[in-house]
């Protein structure tokens, strides 16, 4: 029986919350447009940071340790080296690149190389057989490279030493900065919205006072306002979501999925835009609800 009562109250509050958005539409518009503007900024920074993260991941995945094998190593030795490498931690894949393949590729790349190298026989080929080693965690690439270098039969390793180390630390900094930007944008949005809603609720002080006087509990006064905040947040996130979906698709198609160079690839639009939209809607709703709830608190005697 009590349960039925609460369900009825909840449904009435949902109805009133929606009604209030419409009845106070000009004031609701203030909160809605405030949410819209800030959510657009949040959308841009979310899309930007997720793309940077994606792109750094692609580059990191591309980090390779080139392992040069001694010229005098026979086939058994070469296989042994592969096994020793695979036994190490942090190894994702090991692939063999023979000196013949390397020579063939070089010939194709340049006319000059082609002229010189065509005269070599297989035994005269001065290049090294190599293993291309990909690591699981690129941050530990230098440690893994050192371990590989110590394996018997390995002539030397190369992985772009200094450059990769500094790239990794730059990526880390970029990720941190983007995270800070996104979080501070969300916090700023929350404050802006709380203040806007506070101003709009100010005009409804009398309504709250009357409800209190006729015996409304704090919860029953607060609930319609919180639900109203939910709707405002939801409505406010519509335009940012549309911009995200259509804008990102447009950008992706215009650029063919790549910006500046072949290396910087954008995330595929689907399902990425829907996930981003969902995040926006959730931020809008939560911030709207928190905004209303903290704004109405001021007028309650608790």
């Amino acid at each position: 029986m009590i349960k039925m009562k609460n369900v009825r109250i909840l449904f009435r509050n949902i109805r009133d919350g929606l009604k209030n958005v419409i009845r106070n539409f000009s004031l609701s518009m203030a909160s809605i447009s405030c949410i819209t503007v800030t959510l657009i900024l949040v959308a841009v920074s979310i899309i930007g940071s997720l793309n940077v993260e994606n792109f750094t991941k692609i580059i990191r995945d591309d980090f390779t340790i080139v392992t040069y094998i001694n010229v005098d190593a026979d086939e058994n030795k070469i296989n042994e080296i592969k096994k020793s490498i695979e036994k190490l931690n942090n190894i994702e894949s090991v692939s063999f690149d023979s000196k013949k393949d390397i020579a063939d590729r070089m010939k194709k790349e340049s006319e000059v190389f082609n002229n010189i190298m065509s005269s070599w026989s297989d035994s005269e080929n001065p290049l090294y057989d190599t293993y291309l080693v990909k690591v699981e965690n690129s941050e530990k690439i230098s440690k893994t490279a050192n371990q590989i270098e110590k394996i018997d039969g390995v002539q030397m390793v190369r992985y772009g030493e200094g450059m990769i180390d500094s790239l990794i630390s730059i990526f880390k900094i970029i990720e941190k900065i983007l995270l800070i930007i996104v979080i501070s944008l969300i916090v700023v949005t929350a404050f802006l919205i709380i203040n806007t809603i506070k101003i709009t609720i100010f005009s409804r002080q009398e309504e709250i006072e009357i409800k209190r006087l006729v015996g409304a509990s704090n919860t029953s006064i607060k609930q319609p306002f919180v639900i109203e905040g939910l709707f405002i947040g939801l409505i406010g996130s519509i335009i940012p979501i549309l911009i995200t979906i259509y804008g990102y698709n447009f950008l992706y198609e215009k650029t063919g999925g790549k910006i500046f160079s072949e290396f910087i690839k954008l995330i595929e639009p689907f399902p990425f835009v829907f996930i981003a939209s969902l995040i926006l809607a959730i931020i809008g709703v939560i911030v709207g609800m928190i905004g209303s709830s903290s704004a109405v608190r001021k007028y309650l005697k608790i």
Partner: peptide, 10 residues
């Protein structure tokens, strides 16, 4: 208490 006032007002 302030929170319980509504019970009286009803």
């Amino acid at each position: 208490k302030n929170r319980k006032t509504y019970k009286l007002r009803r």
